[in-house]
């Protein structure tokens, strides 16, 4: 299973400590109301668009996050458990897992395909399968946007904590001819003997991040390097990041 990468973008929470990223794709009133996660996904998408190297037809969009809108959800739970017991309808509206999918499709007027995946440490792997299925189904390109917001410290032990992070990849079908020969590629497989290079370790702040392999993939792509990564603790799946055919 091979796909070419036409654009890549990533964002780390430490770039904007304590604040939301600029997320210019979102209207300012929406940005003010939504979570760090939704802003982070919008920011990573903006960076992938800026990076994009080729023109493609309209894209399907796959969002993915292991935990989703944890921040708004916990705030809502606190409201619900307060003596008044009433929750903010606006915050409830923005607390669904597919919030970023909804907000960005509205902001971009995109009535095409969108979905939202939530598969724990397999989130990146699941999202890549979804992207591959969509490309084989006839989409010219698929934009994958994934990430997770740091969970509140009181809820998770120190050994499970991680920094907020988001990554966007613009994927297209590989082509043996034309401008797509000049794009780097990724390949999903289960053959460890085909390892194509060691990958630098992620920052300590991301070691426990459920989508850490997506961040490492983005780093390799941005640096035009090759390497093989294990995609999830579960299962045999590996991802190779490969150089362009040309």
């Amino acid at each position: 299973m091979e796909m070419a990468i036409a654009g890549v973008g990533k964002w780390l929470g430490s770039e904007n400590p304590g604040t939301k990223p600029p997320a210019q794709l979102l209207p300012s009133r929406v940005r003010a109301r939504v979570s760090i996660l939704t802003c982070a996904l919008a920011e990573a998408l903006q960076r992938a668009v800026d990076f994009q190297k080729i023109t493609t037809e309209p894209s399907a969009t796959v969002f993915a996050s292991a935990f989703g809108e944890t921040g708004p959800l916990l705030s809502l739970l606190e409201q619900a458990l307060s003596p008044e017991g009433e929750v903010s309808p606006l915050m409830f509206m923005y607390s669904v897992h597919n919030n970023a999918s909804g907000c960005l499709s509205i902001a971009r007027g995109d009535q095409g395909f969108t979905t939202s995946i939530a598969a724990g440490e397999e989130t990146f792997l699941s999202a890549l399968f979804e992207c591959y299925g969509l490309l084989k189904d006839g989409w010219d390109s698929v934009t994958l946007i994934l990430g997770d917001e740091a969970p509140p410290h009181f809820f998770v032990p120190a050994e499970q904590r991680f920094e907020s992070m988001a990554v966007a990849l613009h994927l297209v079908n590989c082509s043996p001819s034309g401008p797509r020969r000049a794009l780097p590629r990724i390949r999903l497989h289960t053959r460890p003997e085909e390892n194509c290079g060691k990958v630098p370790a992620p920052p300590n702040s991301l070691v426990n991040h459920p989508c850490v392999s997506a961040y490492q993939t983005a780093c390799l792509l941005e640096a035009s390097q090759s390497g093989t990564l294990r995609l999830a603790a579960w299962g045999p799946w590996l991802i190779d990041v490969l150089p362009p055919l040309d």
Binding site: S116, I117, A118, A119, F129, E130
Partner: peptide
């Protein structure tokens, strides 16, 4: 079963998607 797996969460369309 060890093939690909996923959970989709698109609100009320999730388990049809």
């Amino acid at each position: 079963c060890t093939g690909p797996g996923s959970v989709i969460s698109t609100a009320c369309s999730s388990s049809a998607k």
